[in-house]
């Protein structure tokens, strides 16, 4: 039986700053996970991924990251994505500063 598709967001790093970015529903890149588009359909997710990977002058290292649906938008299921969302835990100078 094929594995059931779990919800995902398209994520990458911005080419110029290196910041973690997420693909929003309007096709723009956002730095806030809460504004990312949660993709619940596998075919849709693959198309969004392919389109995003073509935007080579904006982002680097595009991939689909597992998420669940939270009250304030997508929530990470793995601690790595949680750190990518918030920034390093030893200083409050990643995204925490502007969050």
């Amino acid at each position: 039986m094929p594995r059931q598709f779990t919800p995902k967001v398209v994520t990458a790093n911005a080419l110029l700053e290196g910041d973690v970015v997420y693909l929003a529903a309007d096709g723009s890149w956002t730095r806030e996970l809460s504004r990312a588009e949660l993709l619940t359909d596998e075919a849709d997710a693959q198309i969004r991924l392919i389109d995003a990977q073509a935007r080579v002058d904006e982002v680097v290292g595009v991939y689909l990251a597992d998420m669940t649906e939270g009250e304030n938008g997508p929530e990470p299921t793995h601690f790595r994505e949680d750190f990518r969302r918030t920034g390093p835990s030893n200083y409050r100078h990643g995204k925490q500063v502007t969050a």
Binding site: D19, D57, R84
Partner: peptide
């Protein structure tokens, strides 16, 4: 790289030769 003449695949070995990585946040 910024003006699009080099792809990331082409640029990556060049930046690594100069000590530049792309890490988790930056």
């Amino acid at each position: 790289r910024i003006d699009g003449a080099l792809t990331e695949d082409e640029f990556k070995p060049l930046r690594l030769m100069n000590g530049l990585y792309l890490q988790l946040h930056a």
